[in-house]
């Protein structure tokens, strides 16, 4: 029998995980599905479980001059409804799952699950999100793009827990999130795209793209983005073919029960082209 713990506070959690291996269950919207059992039987957890939904230390959305900090157990719904939340995150959350899932699912859970199709990861990569991890040994901060190492694999030690997600406060002149799902709501993405750009006196000063569900994790290539800084809008538009070619190498989707490689790749690049052409 696995242990299932409902802890009172974070220090209790840190004590527990310093001694024994546990997995965390926050909103449960992935964990309960992945460990589902036959009807009427209890959830078939394979590991010891700590429920984190009632930990005050993992709650709260705060801001200072440069950063917004979101507690790992904040639900998608409460992030969506908080006025501090940047529009770019809200746009994404609005297209995620169903109201019921948004009510329970958490930002920390979406990161911990590290699904290639995790929609929230797409804006978080774009915003250079930092994941804060805590253990008895102290606090560790990791860039989200380093934290997720592979499909459903994360750089989390057994004695650590995700506590906060920190994003820098940036406003873009234009951003566009497109979720391409099999239907208009309550569906897992076939792919997703987020583009964001800012200009100063007609020159690109910030340009970012991230793509979901077209590789093992979100595709974000800062080195490609950097090549277009200080280009004029016209120059950027004129180099759209070249830009697509550069991204093409990193858009490596798979065939599965939801879609196919060719569709995913073509549409991902179409969305990039469309974003640039409509600037």
């Amino acid at each position: 029998m696995v242990k299932q713990i409902l802890p009172k506070n974070l220090s209790e959690v840190l004590e527990l995980i310093s001694k024994e291996k546990y997995r965390f269950c926050a909103g449960g919207t992935d964990m309960l599905i992945q460990n589902h059992n036959l009807k009427t039987l209890p959830i078939d957890f394979k590991d010891n479980i700590i429920y984190t939904f009632n930990l005050e230390e993992l709650k709260g959305i705060t801001e200072d001059e440069d950063f917004i900090t979101i507690g790992a157990s904040e639900s998608l719904e409460s992030i969506l409804e908080n006025k501090i939340t940047p529009q770019i995150l809200k746009d994404t959350i609005l297209q995620m799952a169903s109201p019921a899932i948004r009510h329970s699912g958490t930002i920390g859970g979406n990161i911990g699950n590290a699904s290639p199709a995790g929609d929230l990861l797409v804006p978080l990569y774009l915003l250079n999100a930092i994941v804060q991890l805590q253990s008895l040994k102290g606090i560790r901060s990791v860039l989200l793009s380093d934290f997720i190492t592979h499909v459903r694999r994360i750089d989390l030690r057994d004695d650590e827990i995700i506590t906060k997600i920190i994003i820098s406060k940036i406003n873009f002149d234009k951003h566009q999130f497109v979720k391409v799902g099999p239907r208009l709501s309550d569906a897992i993405s076939k792919l997703s795209f987020l583009g964001a750009v800012s200009f100063h006196e007609d020159k690109v000063i910030d340009l970012r793209f991230s793509f979901g569900a077209v590789n093992i994790t979100v595709v974000r290539r800062p080195e490609i983005e950097a090549q277009y800084i200080y280009k004029t809008k016209e120059e950027l538009k004129n180099s759209v073919d070249e830009l697509l070619e550069k991204y093409s190498e990193y858009i490596r989707p798979i065939d599965d029960q939801r879609s196919n490689k060719e569709y995913r790749k073509t549409v991902a690049l179409n969305l990039l082209r469309n974003f640039i052409e409509e600037l």
Binding site: P182, R183, L184, S185, D186, A187, Q257, R258
Partner: peptide, 9 residues
């Protein structure tokens, strides 16, 4: 994985 329409669709 088997997608049926919602009212949105």
């Amino acid at each position: 994985d088997y997608i049926i329409p919602t009212a949105m669709d």
